[in-house]
Simulated scan of single mutants.
Amino acid sequence: MTTDLLRLVIFDCDGTLVDSQHAIAHCMDHAFAEHGLDCPGLEKTRTIIGLSLPEAIARLARPAVLDASLIDAVTNSYKSAFFTLRQSPDFFEPLFPGVLEVIETLDQRGWLSGVATGKARRGLDAVLERNNLSRRFVTLQTCDNHPSKPHPSMLEAAMSETGTDPRNCAMIGDTTFDIEMGRAAGMLSIGVAWGYHERETLEKAGAHAVIDHFDQLPDVLDGLWHTARHPA
């Protein structure tokens, strides 16, 4: 198959594939409290999900905290809290409805699948293994080796690994960071309405479409790709 025919769809993880908001907010509050900082709470934490952890914590802590060493300490406390939480027998981070079926449909239609996430690789691997998704993605990009979203570095690496062209790629995510990252990489950007940023903010960020249910993705994606490649 030639490079021009290879098509790649790249998914965000938190808020797109899995509903992790409560676990993230719990660990964020724990980390902030451990260092005597005001806990951000769920609603505020939802706004930064998708960013790399140090960037997310820095945004939540401003303007009260500008000290880089404290940001690093809170970051380490968060990682420790999440590792402990993940070992709990009642840990719950469910897939959103339709994920497995849609990835299978996309595969049948000739789309390769990948992930680009603000999670660390250890956290992403845990999610994929727990949900039997480890073999479904041909490229996995995490914050360990890249700048935070919305910088396009993760998407550029995904395209380089798979030999794909941005004209044949799409980013799927629930936050403005995902949409802006996809646009910066020159690919289609599709928002999902079940995640952590509102539909209106996704549209204002430049989403080519926003879907309400996962099973809408294959047809919307194919339609946008075909229109982009074969304009009237």
Rank of each mutant, 00 (worst) to 15 (best):
Met181Ser: 03
Asp125Gln: 15
His197Trp: 08
Glu203Pro: 03
Asp19Thr: 05
Asp19Trp: 01
His230Val: 01
Thr201Arg: 15
Glu129Ser: 10
Thr117His: 04
Leu6Asn: 12
Asp165Tyr: 09
Val138Ala: 14
Leu224His: 05
Ala23Gly: 15
Cys169Asp: 13
Leu202Arg: 00
Met1Lys: 12
Gly223Met: 10
Pro94Phe: 04
Gln108Leu: 14
Cys39Arg: 15
Glu161Leu: 10
Ala185Ser: 14
Thr3Phe: 12
Leu53Glu: 07
Asp212Cys: 02
Ala120Glu: 14
Thr45Lys: 00
Leu140His: 02
Thr75Ser: 09
Arg229Cys: 12
Gly191Glu: 00
Arg59Trp: 09
Tyr78Trp: 08
His151Lys: 09
Leu133Ile: 04
Pro150Ser: 08
Pro218Ala: 01
Ala126Val: 05
Ala23Val: 13
Ala232Met: 13
Thr201Phe: 12
Asp212Trp: 01
Met181Gln: 07
Met28Trp: 01
Ser52Ile: 08
Trp111Ser: 13
Arg46Ile: 13
Leu128His: 05
Asp144Lys: 00
Ile10Ala: 11
Phe177Asp: 02
Thr3Asp: 14
Met159Pro: 05
His151Leu: 09
Ser189Gly: 08
Pro40Asn: 04
Val115Lys: 03
Leu42Ile: 08
Phe11Pro: 12
Arg130His: 15
Met171Ala: 10
Ala207Asn: 04
Asn76His: 11
Gly50Phe: 02
Gly118Cys: 01
Asp212Tyr: 00
Val99Ile: 13
Leu95Arg: 07
Val210Met: 01
Ile10Lys: 09
Asp67Phe: 03
Arg136Trp: 13
Glu43Ile: 14
Leu51Gly: 01
Ser20Glu: 13
Ile211Cys: 10
Ala157Cys: 13
Leu221Tyr: 04
Ser148Gln: 02
Ser69Phe: 03
Pro94Asn: 07
Glu203Cys: 02
Ala23Ile: 10
Leu106His: 00
Gly173Met: 07
Ala73Asn: 08
Met154Gln: 05
Thr45Arg: 02
Glu180Met: 15
Arg109His: 06
Gly50Gln: 03
Glu43Arg: 15
Val210Ser: 03
Ala207Cys: 00
Glu101Ser: 10
Trp225Thr: 01
Arg199Thr: 09
Leu124Met: 06
Ala25Asp: 09
Glu93Ile: 13
Cys39Leu: 13
Gln21Pro: 12
Ala73Cys: 09
Met171Ser: 10
Phe32Leu: 06
Ala64Met: 04
Ser20Thr: 11
Val192Lys: 10
Val210Asp: 01
Arg135Asp: 14
Asp19Pro: 05
Asp72Trp: 05
Ser189Lys: 03
Ala207Met: 02
Pro231Cys: 01
Gln216Ala: 15
Glu198Arg: 15
Gly98Asn: 01
Ala81Glu: 02
Leu42Gln: 06
Thr142Tyr: 04
Ala25Lys: 07
Ala205Pro: 07
Leu188Ile: 11
Arg229Gly: 07
Glu129Asn: 11
Ser52Met: 03
Arg135Cys: 10
Gln141Arg: 06
Ser153Thr: 12
Arg86Ser: 14
Asn132Leu: 13
